[in-house]
Amino acid sequence: MSAGKIVRRNSLVYWRAWRTSFFLSVLGPVMFLSAMGLGLGSLIEEEQAFGGVSYLSFFATGMLAASTFQSGAFSATYPIMNKMMWQRNYDAMLASPVGVRDIFLGELGWIGVTLLQLAVPFFGVMAVFGVVDSPMALLAIPAAVLAGLSCASAVFAYTATLQTDEAYTWLFRFIITPLFLLSGTFFPINQLPEWGQVAAHLTPLFHGVELVRQVTVYNVDVSALWHVSYLLAMLAIGTMVGIRNLDRRLRP
């Protein structure tokens, strides 16, 4: 299994810029939670609508899942396309005993690492803001990473079929951003019309958001199993289809 070699290659490149990217992954949540959570949240006294928690708690937990989700999506677009067709790094790897599977799993593994680097500081900021207090809440980190990875696997599978990067504009404008807005990150989905609620239940981000909220600020119930299963299934399918697509692409 050579997937670890791909992770190492990426970490070597990443290492040069880790300070900046660590700084950004702390700064991001601090700004969001201050502005939206505290600023906007102070105007919202109604806690009933948010499942009995403050708007800050509601927003922070949703935002954690949404951040990893978006980051997972982005990581599987340009950076992958660059190595696949612009720099052709994957062709170089394939001339060695490294295989298509190794490349896919290695890249996904690396995306997992970057999502951790995003989720852990985010969680730290949430703790500082007093959003989380129980050890159980730590499960929010794997939950958020899982949401990001399942999205990444699907987007990677799509990237492997693309001939240009034009489609990404559409992907972000019409899929990723609407999901971000309508999956219960900013407001509870019961504010959506009936069909919107049904649709939300089908989107992966909704399940990620719900999962994070259950382990942090709500109570965990059996639906958590369903959310986890949904995300794992998406990850598995994304990976299977992704490896097949990448093989067709790289070994014509």
């Binding site: 070699k5 052709r88 790094n89 062709d91 170089a92 790897m93 005993p97």
Partner: peptide
């Protein structure tokens, strides 16, 4: 290969080290 596919984000030496690892 016909078109170079070196790892432009790495140095000359790192390119060879990484390939050795592969």
């Amino acid at each position: 290969p016909q078109t170079d596919n070196l790892d432009i984000e790495l140095t000359v030496r790192e390119n060879l080290e990484m390939y050795g690892r592969y």
